[in-house]
């Protein structure tokens, strides 16, 4: 019976995996397709990968996308982590108000958030990289707060108080006690924010103005004329690079965990 359940579970996971990865497989295959057409196979080639590095437009969009993702996640952590600590110390009523406001960008449809920000921005700043960055920070902060908050709730604040009573300054106590406790939440918040920023299209589309392009908006603009195969090559590179990085991080943290378990057993 157990073996039967194992097999069914395995098959089901494989099925969902197939759905999730089928389009990715298609894109990877296309990146090696010598024919420019999306429907015919014209033989194997590395050409698109080589041409990618001389395509100034794509590289620029990649650069914008990465800077945007990095800067917006970093600012979100810098605003969101103290924000979460502050909100946690509030009374129930204020806490409720802040958490509701935090949920607004997550509940609202992307298109509404994007339009509202655009209508607001046009009153005082030109649409461009700056406005997109502000928009990305706005939708990223909630991800940071929502991943740090459970950590803060689990934290034993008396340890912090004890550190302070024993003479540590607030800054020292923050870095020695609070920060290490919150770190896993901060890392996953940063990672979520980075992923959301990289994958966003709608909000960027409405707040970007002319002249600035992220990979998403550039791809959207190319839909009717046909996607440049270099784009498939770039996506494949990003995908493979991220897979390798995440796999390494994962193996390292597993090892770290096992290490801790072993130490405890001694």
């Amino acid at each position: 019976m157990k073996r039967f359940k194992d097999i069914i579970s395995g098959i089901y996971i494989g099925f969902i995996g197939l759905i999730l990865y089928a389009p990715i497989l298609v894109l990877i295959v296309l990146s090696f397709n010598a024919s420019r057409s999306r429907v015919t196979w014209g033989g194997f080639t590395f050409d698109w990968y080589i041409r990618l590095f001389s395509n100034q437009q794509i590289l620029e969009a990649l650069f914008t996308t990465l800077i945007l993702a990095f800067a917006s996640s970093a600012v979100s952590v810098l605003v969101g982590v103290p924000g979460a600590l502050g909100i946690h110390a509030m009374n129930k009523k204020k806490y409720g108000i802040f958490m509701t406001l935090t949920n607004i960008p997550m509940l609202n449809a992307d298109i509404v958030t994007g339009i509202a920000l655009m209508l607001w921005f046009v009153h005082f700043i030109p649409l461009g990289f700056g406005s997109v960055l502000l928009a990305h920070i706005t939708f990223n902060i909630p991800y940071v707060i929502l991943s740090v908050m459970p950590r803060i709730q689990q934290m034993n604040l008396s340890v912090y108080e004890a550190t302070r009573d024993l003479g540590a300054g607030p800054v020292y106590a923050f870095f020695k006690v609070l920060l290490p406790e919150m770190m896993p939440g901060i890392i996953s918040g940063f990672f979520m924010a980075f992923t959301m920023s990289m994958d966003d299209f709608v909000i960027t589309y409405f707040t970007k103005g002319a002249g600035v392009n992220t990979l998403s908006t550039m791809i959207y603009g190319e839909i009717r004329k046909g996607i440049k195969p270099e784009m498939y090559a770039l996506s494949t590179i990003i995908f493979v690079a991220v897979s390798i990085i995440l796999l390494c991080v994962n193996t390292l943290s597993e090892k770290h965990k096992n290490h801790i378990v072993e130490e405890k057993n001694l």
Binding site: L20, A22, P23, M198, D199, S216, I219, I227, S235, S243
Partner: peptide
């Protein structure tokens, strides 16, 4: 999968 651009995935 979210690391492959979503418009490209939908095109796929």
């Amino acid at each position: 999968p979210m690391w492959m651009n979503f418009i490209l995935r939908i095109l796929a």
